[in-house]
Structures are given as structure tokens and as C-alpha cells.
């Protein structure tokens, strides 16, 4: 509900009559006049006053116009429902369903496209999640495979070294409080003097440090049999050949290496006999 007096006083009817409103605004005024008879009456009255100006400003058109216009009227299909509000809208007759169909089709296509984009986007996210999951699984499987392969290789090595006829086994005794749970087995092939260290359990190597195995001979020589890094996974280490050793020491030394075992860093040891 509008304030009719305020609407009339606003000057919009004068703007309507002077033609300065946009086609849309013009239609709004016409709809308002349809709804409120007082506004329609005011508009009619003002329009009549202005039409006096048209009476005086008459200019007779060229004589040929009368027939020209009539011919055009005869040619025009008046079944069209063209709007009065402006020439721009009159270009496409509204009875043509093509623009409407195109608009609807465009809207449907846009809607379907957006719908499928959303679905596709959701699926893409799912796919990405699955790929991430698969990559993770793959990485895990790869790690497991590496571990299994390593274990297999270790077991193969172990089975091969433990099957040697002239083998002697020495279980190294933990010598350090932090290495009490250590299990290191030395496998000595007495035929070839080859030595293997089967590392079942041992504290992880300290940063910048490596384990070193030393052979102590009867005359007190300290021979380095090899070194390794231990990351907590059981492993078999092939060491240098062993000659005349009476004791084996396992120490942890700097990565750069040392000439002699550091006796304060002995983790395990075993008497050779």
C-alpha cells in the first residue's frame, strides 16, 4: 500500500509524461496507475493538459505517409504481443518461443553443468583422498616389501651361514647398562675364518656414531673387523676374516673412525675359543 498523495507529489507522474523515465520505470508507473484509480485520474488529467501543447504544435506529415503507414499496417501481423514500453523490446516478438526456450535451455544447461561440476568436484576430492590413501598404502606396502625383502635376505644369509658345517656361534654378552637387552650372535666359519654378526637387538646408533667390531688377538692386537649403523632393525653384518682372536668387542665410535676401540664405549663382548 502506497501513500497516494505522496506518490503524486513525488513528481514521478510528471517525469512519466515528460518521457524521462526508463522503460522499466514507465511500466512501474502504469502498473501503479492500474492499481490506484486516483493516480490514474491524476495522470489522465495531467496528460490532457499537456496534449494541448500537441494541438498547437501540429506539423502535417508528407502526403505519402498516409498510404505508407496503411500498407505497413496491412503487412503487420497483429497477433504479436509486443510490449509498448520501447523499441528495444519490440525487436523480438514475444510469441516467438525461441528466446524463451533458449533461456530455459541455457538455464537448464547451466544448472546441470554446475550440478555435475559440484558432483565432479566432490568426486575429484574423493579421488584425491583415495589417491592420497593409496599413495600412503603404497608407501607402507613398499616399506613392508623392503622390510620383507630385507628379512628374507637376512634369513637367507642367516640360513646359509648357520648351515655351514664348521660354524661356531658366539652370543655376545651385554657389557653396558643401556645394552642389557642386546642380542648379537657372532657366526664364525672356521673353514674360511669369515665372521658374520647377526644383530637381533641393539640400541639404535647415536647421532654421528657407528658400531665397530674389534678382534683382540692373543698378543693384544686390536683389529677392526668392520662397522655399521644400527637403526633398530635386525640385520646381518659380514665382517672381515678373523685370525687368532681371543675376544670380540662391540663398541660405538665416531663415524669418522678410530684406530683403537674406546673401552668406555663397549656395548657387548664375547670370548672366542
Amino acid at each position: 500500500m502506497i501513500d497516494i498523495k505522496q506518490y503524486i507529489e513525488s513528481g514521478i507522474l510528471e517525469e512519466y509524461l515528460s518521457g524521462t523515465l526508463t522503460p522499466t520505470e514507465r511500466t512501474e508507473v502504469e502498473l501503479t496507475a492500474d492499481k490506484y484509480p486516483e493516480i490514474a485520474q491524476e495522470l489522465a488529467s495531467m496528460s490532457l493538459s499537456l496534449s494541448m501543447m500537441a494541438d498547437i504544435g501540429e506539423v502535417v506529415p508528407a502526403a505519402y505517409m498516409e498510404e505508407k503507414i496503411w500498407d505497413e499496417i496491412l503487412r503487420t501481423d497483429f497477433d504479436d504481443q509486443e510490449e509498448l514500453i520501447g523499441p528495444n523490446k519490440a525487436v523480438i516478438p514475444k510469441t516467438s518461443k525461441l528466446p524463451y526456450i533458449l533461456s530455459v535451455a541455457t538455464a537448464i544447461i547451466a544448472f546441470v553443468t554446475i550440478y555435475y561440476l559440484i558432483i565432479a568436484n566432490g568426486r575429484l576430492d574423493d579421488a584425491k583422498a583415495k589417491i592420497t590413501s593409496l599413495e600412503s598404502e603404497n608407501s607402507e606396502l613398499s616399506a613392508n616389501y623392503d622390510k620383507l625383502k630385507y628379512d628374507y635376505d637376512s634369513l637367507t644369509t642367516l640360513s646359509s651361514i648357520y648351515d655351514i658345517e664348521n660354524t661356531k656361534l658366539y652370543v655376545m654378552k651385554p657389557h653396558r647398562r643401556s645394552a642389557l637387552g642386546s642380542v648379537v650372535i657372532l657366526v664364525w666359519d672356521r673353514t674360511t675364518n669369515q665372521v658374520y654378526a647377526d644383530i637381533k637387538s641393539l640400541p639404535v646408533s647415536n647421532s654421528g656414531m657407528k658400531y665397530n667390531l674389534w678382534a683382540i688377538t692373543q698378543i693384544g692386537q686390536q683389529i677392526n673387523l668392520g662397522n655399521f649403523e644400527h637403526k633398530g632393525i635386525s640385520q646381518v653384518i659380514k665382517l672381515d676374516k678373523l685370525h687368532n682372536a681371543v675376544e670380540i668387542l662391540l663398541t660405538q665410535e665416531k663415524e669418522s673412525g678410530v684406530s683403537y676401540p674406546t673401552m668406555s664405549r663397549v656395548y657387548c663382548k664375547a670370548k672366542i675359543y
Binding site: 496507475a33 492500474d34 484509480p37 490514474a40 485520474q41 495522470l43 489522465a44 496528460s47 490532457l48 499537456l50 496534449s51 500537441a54 505517409m65 505508407k68 503507414i69 505497413e72 499496417i73 503487420t76 497483429f78 504479436d80 509486443e82 509498448l84 523499441p87
Partner: peptide
């Protein structure tokens, strides 16, 4: 010309409560 064509085409929309036929054409 377009005015006459529109008058013929939309004559059914003319409403004499809103003004005379001439002001409508105008």
C-alpha cells in the same frame, strides 16, 4: 508509422479510465 502500428496492435489495452484515446496515442 510505428505509433499507428502500435495503436492498431495494442488497441485492446486502451483504458478510457486513464485518459482519452488521443492522450494514449500521444
Amino acid at each position: 508509422q510505428e505509433t499507428f502500428i502500435k495503436v492498431f496492435k495494442h488497441v485492446h489495452k486502451f483504458d478510457d479510465s486513464k485518459g482519452t484515446f488521443f492522450t494514449w496515442m500521444l
